[in-house]
Design a protein around this nucleic acid. Structure first.
Lengths: 202, 202
DNA sequence: GTCTATAGCCAGATAGAC
DNA sequence: GTCTATCTGGCTATAGAC
C-alpha cells in the first residue's frame, strides 16, 4: 500500500460518487467516471474490478454517511422533542449539502429489489426500537396525542427528506426559481420542527 | 386508423409503463418491453419511432394521471381542512395502486435535468395560487397558526408521497414485512389527515 | 401491421506494453 | 500503477420479406 495508491483510489471514488449519484447505476458510464477522475478507464477496473463493485462502494459510503448519526440521535436519553429538534437540525443541512444522496439511495433501492434485499441482510440500519417505545410511553402517559410511533417516524423522514427528493417537481409546482427554493430550504428547519411538534400535541 | 392498430399501441404502452416505471429510462430494455407486450422489438419502433419517444409517452401519461385531480381539489371553494382531507383520501389510495409512479417521476426528473426543464416549459402543473392565498388569509384571520403556505404544501406532498418513494428503506428501518408496511399505508389516510390538521392549529 | 435478420454503435472489460 | 489498443457482448435501430 503506497501513498499514491490510496490517493488514486480516493480520486476515483470521488468521481464515481458524483456520476453515480447524479445518473444512477444504469445511467452512469465508466468512461465518464474515468474522465472526471482524470485517469484511464482501465484503471477503474484495476482498482474496483467492475462497475457493480465500484457502485457498491459508492452506495455503501452513501448510506454510511446517513446511518450512524440517526442511530446516535434515536438512542440517546433525550426527550422526544429534543430528538426531533436535533434530527431536523442535523439532517436538513446535511442533505442540503449532499442533494443527490436521497434520490440516489431511493432510486437504486427501488430499481434493484434483489440488490436491496441482499444489501440490507448484510448491513444494519439504525435501531428504532428505543425511540418507538419512548413515543408509545408518552402516548400512554397522555403527554402527546394518541398515535402510532411508526407513523410518526414516517412523518419525520418524509418532511425532512422529501423536499430534496421532489425538488424539481415542487420547484415548478410552487413556482420558485433555484434561489427561491433554496430560501424555502433554509427556513425549513424551523418550520418542520414546529410543525412536527405541533402535530403530536394533544 | 384500424381497431387492431389502437390495440397494439395500447398493449405496447402498457408494457412500456411497467418496464420504464420499475427500471427507469436508462435501465429499461426495448427487448424487455417487447417481450412483455408479446410482440416484436421492431414493432416498438414502428409505433413509437425510438426509445426516447416511447418513454415520453409513458412519462406524460404518468404525470397526466396525477395532475388534473390536484388541480381540481386545490381550486375548489372548499375549506382548507376539506381540501387536505380530500387530497389525502384521494392520493394515498391512488399512489398505493400505482406504486412505481412517484419514484419513476422523481428519478427521471432528477437524472435528466435538461429533459425536465424542457418538459415543464411545455406542460402545465396545477395552479397552487388559490390554495396558497387561502392559507395566507386563514393565517391573517388568525384561524390557523402562522406559517408559510409553500412550506405547508411541501409538507402535504411529503407525508403523502414519501412512504411510497422511501418504501424499501422505511420498511427495513421500521422492521416491517410487506404485509406490515401495507397495514401502515392503510392506516395512513387517517393518521396523515389528523397530523396535518393538527400541525396548523394555533 | 408484423415478422426475421442484421447493421452499427457503444459500453464494460481485458491484454499487454511501459 | 498507469497507459493504449482491442475484444466482446448487448442494445437501439433499420432493412426488407411476408
Amino acid at each position: 500500500m503506497k501513498g499514491k495508491d490510496q490517493n488514486t483510489e480516493q480520486v476515483i471514488l470521488g468521481a464515481a460518487v458524483e456520476i453515480f449519484q447524479s445518473k444512477g447505476f444504469a445511467g452512469a458510464r465508466m468512461q465518464e467516471i474515468a474522465d472526471k477522475a482524470g485517469i484511464n478507464k482501465a484503471l477503474l477496473h484495476y482498482y474496483f474490478r467492475n462497475k457493480q463493485l465500484l457502485f457498491e462502494s459508492v452506495f455503501k459510503s452513501a448510506l454510511g454517511q446517513l446511518v450512524p448519526e440517526v442511530s446516535k440521535i434515536f438512542n440517546t436519553d433525550l426527550s422526544i422533542s429534543e430528538k426531533v429538534t436535533q434530527f431536523v437540525a442535523h439532517y436538513i443541512p446535511f442533505v442540503n449539502q449532499n442533494r443527490y444522496l436521497p434520490v440516489f439511495i431511493i432510486q437504486e433501492l427501488n430499481n434493484n429489489p434483489e440488490f436491496s434485499d441482499q444489501f440490507f441482510s448484510n448491513h444494519k440500519l439504525p435501531q428504532t426500537e428505543k425511540f418507538k417505545n419512548q413515543i408509545q410511553e408518552a402516548v400512554e402517559k397522555g403527554e402527546i396525542r394518541k398515535l402510532d410511533p411508526d407513523q410518526f417516524i414516517l412523518d419525520l423522514f418524509a418532511v425532512v427528506v422529501f423536499p430534496f427528493v421532489g425538488r424539481p417537481l415542487m420547484k415548478t409546482l410552487l413556482q420558485k426559481d433555484d434561489e427561491g427554493f433554496d430560501d424555502l430550504i433554509q427556513s425549513r428547519i424551523e418550520h418542520v420542527t414546529t410543525m412536527l411538534l405541533n402535530s403530536i400535541k394533544k
